[in-house]
Amino acid sequence: MTGPRRDADERLRARLREAAGAHRPDRARILARVERGRAVGDRGPARLRLPGWVRVAGATAAVAGVLVAGGSAVAPAVRDDVPAQRSVTTPPGPREPGPLWSSGAVDPHSNAFWAQSTVTLGTSTPLTALTVELRVAQTGSVTSTGAWRSLPEKDFTFAVDERDGFVVYRWTLRPGRTVPAGAWMFAGQYHHERGGRDAGGDRYSATATAPSGSRTVRGDFTPGG
């Protein structure tokens, strides 16, 4: 190609290269557009408004190279700075009248070989004595893999054994210790036979002493938290 047309193409390519080198993505504006896109219902990635010179020259081969370069520069900025979503678990509400309430749930992160059963115990007043017992039915190869509680470990004695067709977890508040008002968790973890395990036979109970007297709560487990 020779003559005026070739000179015009060379000038266009030079202009594109100069503009591409000078372009810097506005990160704050990009992130703001992404957040607005999420707020209206996750309609997909935010569309970036391209400069006018790119839209005008969109039919030329040189523009394709500019768009590729621009895309590779913008994408990491969005990916690195947008915070990851985190799930939040809301504690269950009261199920029994009085100062003591409870609920039981199979942890939603349980899988085909392993599970966790969690007892949540709530009290509106300090407790001077407390025993929590979790009974996991022996549905096949149920074996304890551990346990935990949200209260201090040193405040409790703990035992786990198997009896009467159950793996039994038992937490007992030590003499002289106190459970403050609040919601507290007691969890037993275990292996089981492969496949979905039926927790319909599992049970728990908690016996406590409060200023108003002794209280007992008991219940079963809901699947998946």
Rank of each mutant, 00 (worst) to 15 (best):
M1A: 11
M1P: 03
T2M: 00
R6L: 13
D7P: 00
A8D: 10
L12K: 13
L12S: 13
R15S: 14
R15E: 14
R17Q: 09
A19T: 10
A20F: 01
G21A: 15
G21C: 06
D26M: 05
D26N: 10
D26L: 06
R27M: 09
A28H: 05
R29M: 11
R29S: 14
L31N: 12
G37W: 07
G37Y: 07
A39L: 14
V40F: 05
R43Q: 15
P45E: 13
L48C: 00
R49N: 09
G52Y: 05
W53C: 03
V56M: 03
G58T: 08
T60R: 13
T60S: 15
A64M: 10
V66G: 13
L67N: 11
L67I: 14
V68Y: 03
V68A: 13
A69K: 00
G70H: 13
G71P: 00
A73R: 15
V74K: 02
V74Y: 00
P76M: 11
D81C: 06
V82C: 04
V82Y: 01
V82L: 14
A84K: 11
T89A: 12
T90S: 10
T90N: 05
P92I: 04
G93S: 02
R95H: 11
R95N: 08
S102V: 09
S103D: 12
S103L: 07
G104L: 03
N111S: 09
F113E: 03
F113S: 06
V119L: 15
T120R: 15
T125H: 00
T128Q: 04
A129R: 04
T131L: 00
E133L: 08
E133M: 09
A137K: 11
Q138T: 03
S141V: 08
T143L: 15
T145I: 02
P152A: 03
D155Q: 10
F156V: 03
T157S: 08
F158K: 12
V160H: 14
D161E: 11
D161Q: 05
T172M: 04
L173A: 05
R174W: 01
P175S: 01
V179L: 02
P180F: 01
P180H: 01
M185I: 06
F186R: 04
Q189D: 09
H192V: 03
E193L: 14
G196P: 12
R197Q: 10
G201T: 08
R203C: 11
Y204V: 07
S205G: 07
A208L: 02
A208P: 01
P211V: 00
G213H: 02
S214N: 07
R215P: 00
T216N: 05
R218F: 10
T222V: 12
G225H: 08
G225P: 06
G225K: 10
